[in-house]
Amino acid sequence: MEKIKFVIDGKEVEAIRDQCVLDVARQNGIYIPGLCYNPEVKFSGGSCRLCLVEAHQAGRMSLVTACNYPIREGLEIKTDTSLVKRIRKGIIELLLARVPDSDVIKELAAEAGIDEPRFVKDEGENYHSKCIACGLCIQVCEEVVGVSAIAMLNRGPDKTPGTPYKKPSEVCIGCGACAYACPTDAIPMEDNGDTRKIWGREFKMHLCSVCGKPYIPEAQIDWIVKTTGKDRVFFDKCPDCR
């Protein structure tokens, strides 16, 4: 792994060639906002556009997303210029009009100095709950869980995560990874006694043989046993009681 140096906000910093700007910035305590990127998920990022920064290279400047911009020799990054702030503010205002109920977005808007969006807030048929359509849930389900129960459906303004035909998915294992990964807490997951409801389907939860707590969907145990060959006995106890 080739180590190289580059400049971020005037500071010379070391990085691995082709590592993304956002990871290195965070390691160095430089704050860049961003919602759709998760370093654990290879194909995440690039969609919310909140992590835009100025990239100066070979005498040219462009705005790039820090979450997937590869660091190479001679790169200089500026994270806090007036251009960056202006475009980021514009994006936050658009998101605020889309999901006015999202606390995460409201907080970002307050930071950027936006009280109210200048656009009509989405409501009624157009209501997106808190979903910013960033697609992270989809990537988690595909890459991390390996199930692909959900996908990004439709296109343009109608783009939305969902199951085929909006029916309860036959392949979903109820693990809830999508809900945990969601940056705006937009995926409803209800745990009620020994059942869990997510994506319109109810899952029976497995109870810990020691403390009696429902802690994992039976379907998820089946999936893990099937794909990894792990002994089913392992799941008798919850992580706390193991």
């Binding site: 996908a151 990004m152 459906l153 439709n154 296109r155 085929p164 392949v171």
Partner: peptide, 12 residues
Amino acid sequence: VPESRIYAMATF
């Protein structure tokens, strides 16, 4: 190939 992926193509 996951059904969701094919369905997504059909909607896209």
